[in-house]
Write a protein that binds this DNA or RNA. Structure first.
Lengths: 162, 162
DNA sequence: TTACGTGCAAAGGCTTTGCAGTCGG
DNA sequence: CCGACTGCAAAGCCTTTGCACGTAA
């Protein structure tokens, strides 16, 4: 279940390189390193998470460069930007998986992805009904993941007993 | 269509007063003024918008107090907090209307509300499927409102002609 | 009277910007 | 070589916090 999808990552790096070359933008060590970290991330890292990951690998990339590279990655369409209302952004590389939404655990921060075709169609319909041109959307369900759900119930029992 | 819902606003102010009294918290001029501005707002104002509205009415309330009052209003359940990914929060008073979602225009910032029972049920189902305890959710559709949609097409024609 | 609120200014957290030095193509 | 990038530090935003003073009950 925790696949690293190395082949996907390689392909994405190539696509990013191509994107840069097409626009006559330098393909620098920093840009590739930031992209690689993100392409290999199994989750939805924040800028801080990406920086720490880079440090762990022994390389240092200035914060400003990380932000600037993320802008490029988002523009290129290879990376998706998220704002789960935590006060900072998270990023996610686009694998071959289809468009998906998120379930966010309010206790442990775990993010689970889900796909639902019917939901997507319904959103198209709703936009149409309001004569809106539908460009993108965001569906997030907040609550407790299976683990935290049980733990919360346990906490409650403990507090009642004490 | 642009109803100010004055009766609703009055009732909400009363409910807020009751909320404060119940917790033995002082009912101050500032708290009521911030609440009133929000209860009368037809849209989803930001902290800055609320402050400017207060100034327009000739009263001044410190920024810190506005933030602290908004915390109370959200805790009381009379106000809903939103984050449309703009880098700041927006607030909306809970009228008697049922739970709703938002269509956001990426050009002019207009926010249109919509209600869709089927959508709500579908989200419950999805959370269930993943054994998540569903506490709240967020559905936002971004794009162009009817007005901006036309304007964008016009811009495009103009740029092609020039 | 007294606990809590208020306003100001300072601090905080995330992100962007300005600029001198550096490097890819 | 030149234009674009990088890193650092400073600045920008929104929001929170500390503190002396004020006020609701």
């Amino acid at each position: 279940m925790t696949t690293t999808r190395p082949d996907s990552a390689l392909e994405l790096r190539e696509r990013f390189t191509r994107y840069l070359r097409d626009r006559r933008l330098p393909v620098t060590r920093q840009r590739l390193q930031v992209a690689d970290v993100l392409f290999h991330a199994p989750d939805h890292p924040s800028v801080d998470g990406i920086s720490r990951d880079l440090k762990r690998r022994g390389v240092t990339v200035g914060t400003a460069t990380v932000y600037r590279t993320l802008d490029l990655l988002v523009e290129s369409g290879l990376v998706r930007e998220h704002d789960f209302g935590e006060g900072f952004r998270r990023f996610e590389s686009m694998t071959t998986r289809s468009h998906h939404e998120h379930l966010v655990c309010q206790r442990c921060g775990q993010v689970v992805e889900f796909v639902n075709e019917r939901l997507e169609r319904m959103l198209d319909m709703i936009a149409d009904e309001h004569t809106f041109l539908h460009r993108r959307h965001r569906v997030e369900i907040f609550g407790l993941c299976p683990d935290c759900r049980g733990r919360d119930a346990a906490d409650l029992r403990a507090s009642v007993t004490s």
